[in-house]
Design a protein around this nucleic acid. Structure first.
Length: 599
DNA sequence: GCGGATCAC
DNA sequence: TATGGTGATCCGC
């Protein structure tokens, strides 16, 4: 069972300082290329970097009251001596080596590089990107507010419960209620859809809208529409949301963080304003730039989006490893303005995985594998897919993750067909001592095609036989991806070749959300259209039974706030409880019970 | 096509 | 004492 965590406190709206660009985090000052701080020893520097790395993903994404270095230290101390920590340390060492390799490579290439030429090329790309800039749309990113109180202490989603408790000793854990989240999310969605029927949800707690048509229709300004929209959401669901208004999704997402919680921020649709906005923005805030990319870019002197421009020649030189075009788009604040719900046929895989206490007994492991195969079967049935590639994943007790896959000559979707292949793959790996097992089906075929009669035909089709038509308007999304290959790169391309921006600078990905279907708030899977609440509850119950313990999950929505003494249900909680109550699984009846009341 | 890594939510 | 699950993408081979 997962838990929500809240620090008790009085009215949140008053305690939270305005979000500002982090001044208290371990990011070196912006703009002029910062030389390495001379007074800090290399060893101490590495340690700080590692602590930051360990602190995890979401840490640098938003502002924080508490000193981040202190938080990182607490996290590191609490983790010390664990296998998890040891593995993270190993990963960090590998990252350091990788960065060293990249630095050597950079110096090597710089010797023969024609930097003015590289800079000129970068300028040309910038000019081309500028020509594609679309400032005509008003895109809104909305984000449900959560973690008000605990956030101040450095508590983050994805954090282990016991670490959170260290950061915030009076933290109170509340068992979360995914059915209520789902219901609340649905209610919010219904309100939002009044402002843009093409609303694209990205998970339970955020979404994008294009309000341009609504503005025209009602002759309203963007900020008035969003104020209206937020008031409507709060009035009808009791939940507060934060919103960002900007000409594209990339900017809107960044903006929605600016006046969080329960606020909004609009970025004018003007190229100069946009660029000024991006210039001092930490590169880590750009979707797609995670903790690894942040470290790599930092080693190249890039901490802010503005630094991308400063270092454009060198980034061009290292294009293959860094992805020049994506970074230039971040610098320019250019992104997609297309808002559409994801399509069902865009799905690429269906998988199921479980964490458990370390297992080495082979019979037990295979039992677990079979259990997972069964769960996968029901997920495949529910989502209406079959696959022709079986991928087994396991995590050793050391936290090392491995995958093994096999392609089949037919599409399968039952445990009876999947398990034998999974078993064969896993048995080759024995002896094992593992803490996680998973199976994923890829190379999917949609059994739930638009024409029902076609299903049988497709079910018997052979790989390669049929190709699904891809949608013409593949929206690449806004994410930037920074790639760096291993250091052993024997073939030394000449700078001019390596600099070619056309090749593959742009590395993007997206995670489509599926339209018009119920998503299970636990496993995130899409339930068939027409699924009833009862079906949903049954599915959720089965998910809950297998949910792993006490990790603060990402998709949690703050529905209750808990004081030291009692939990006070919000309006939506009461309502949704009544609605879902028809047949609430036992587990859900215990929802919102205080688990650890910090006594 | 396979396996490792990274990222988002 | 103790660190999640699902899905996607990209790279090097």
């Amino acid at each position: 069972m997962a838990y929500n965590a809240y620090a008790s406190s009085s009215k949140h709206t008053l305690d939270i300082p305005e979000l500002q660009l982090p001044t208290n985090v371990a990011v070196p000052p912006p703009s002029p290329p910062p030389p390495a701080p001379p007074q800090v020893s290399t060893q101490a520097r590495k340690e700080t970097d590692f602590h930051r790395y360990l602190a995890g993903q979401s840490v640098m994404k938003s502002g924080l009251t508490r000193d981040q270095a202190e938080v990182n230290k607490i996290i590191a101390d609490a983790s010390k001596d664990s296998k998890f920590f040891k593995r993270e340390r190993e990963k960090d060492d590998l990252l350091v080596k990788r960065i060293e390799g990249l630095m050597r490579k950079k110096e090597e290439l710089e010797k023969r590089a024609n930097l003015p030429k590289l800079e000129k090329e970068a300028n040309e790309i910038i000019a081309k990107l500028e020509a594609t800039r679309d400032l005509s749309q008003k895109i809104v990113h909305v984000d449900l507010d959560a973690f008000y109180e605990a956030r101040k202490y450095g508590v983050r989603s994805g954090m282990a419960g016991f670490i959170a408790k260290k950061l915030c000793p009076h933290l109170i854990f509340v068992k979360n209620n995914f059915a209520d989240y789902s219901e609340a999310s649905k209610q919010v969605r219904e309100v939002l859809a009044r402002y843009d029927e093409n609303l694209a949800m990205a998970g339970l707690d955020e979404g994008y809208l294009n309000i341009t048509p609504y503005m025209t229709l009602h002759d309203m300004s963007a900020s008035d529409v969003v104020s209206h929209l937020r008031a409507a959401v709060e009035a009808e669901t009791g939940l507060t949301i934060s919103a960002g208004i900007a000409p594209n999704k990339l900017l809107a997402k960044i903006c929605s963080d600016k006046n969080k919680p329960d606020g909004q921020f609009e970025l004018e649709g003007d190229a100069k304003v946009v660029k000024a906005f991006m210039r001092d923005l930490p590169i880590r805030r750009v979707p797609g730039v995670g903790r690894v990319a942040e470290r790599i870019l930092s080693s190249m002197g890039v901490q802010t989006c503005g630094d991308v421009y400063t270092h454009r020649a060198v980034i061009n030189l290292m294009d293959h490893h860094l992805g020049l075009q994506g970074l230039l788009k971040a610098y320019l604040g250019i992104g997609s303005s297309v808002v559409q719900p994801g399509r069902r046929e865009e799905r690429k895989s269906v998988g199921c995985e479980r964490t458990f206490s370390d297992k080495s007994n082979e019979t037990e492991i295979l039992e677990m594998l079979e259990h997972i195969a069964q769960e996968l079967e029901s997920d495949l049935a529910r989502t209406g897919f079959a696959g022709r590639c079986v991928c087994v994943k396991y995590k050793a007790h050391t936290y090392e993750v491995k995958t093994r896959q096999v392609s089949l000559n037919k599409f399968v979707n039952t445990a009876a067909e999947i398990y034998p292949h999974a078993k064969e793959l896993l048995e080759k790996e024995f002896p094992l001592k593992i803490r996680l097992l998973g199976i994923r089906m890829t190379h999917l075929k949609d059994l739930q095609g638009p024409q029902g009669g076609l299903d049988k035909f497709l079910a018997e089709s052979v790989p390669g036989r049929k190709k699904r038509l891809r949608s013409a308007s593949q929206d690449p999304g806004d994410d930037i991806r920074v790639i760096s290959s291993d250091e052993d790169d024997e073939t030394h391309r000449r700078p001019s070749e390596s600099a070619s921006p056309q090749r593959k600078a742009m590395r993007m990905h997206r995670s489509p959300s599926l339209a018009d279907a119920m998503n299970c708030p636990i496993c995130g899977k899409t339930l068939k259209n027409g699924t009833t609440n009862v079906d949903l509850n049954r599915h959720i119950d089965s998910c809950l039974r297998a949910t792993s313990p006490e990790v603060i999950s990402d998709d949690e929505i703050e529905i209750v706030k808990v004081s030291r003494s009692a939990a006070q249900p919000s309006p939506v909680q009461k309502r949704s409880k009544q609605k879902v109550k028809a047949k609430p699984p036992d587990k859900l009846q215990n929802a919102f019970q205080l688990m650890m009341s910090g006594k």
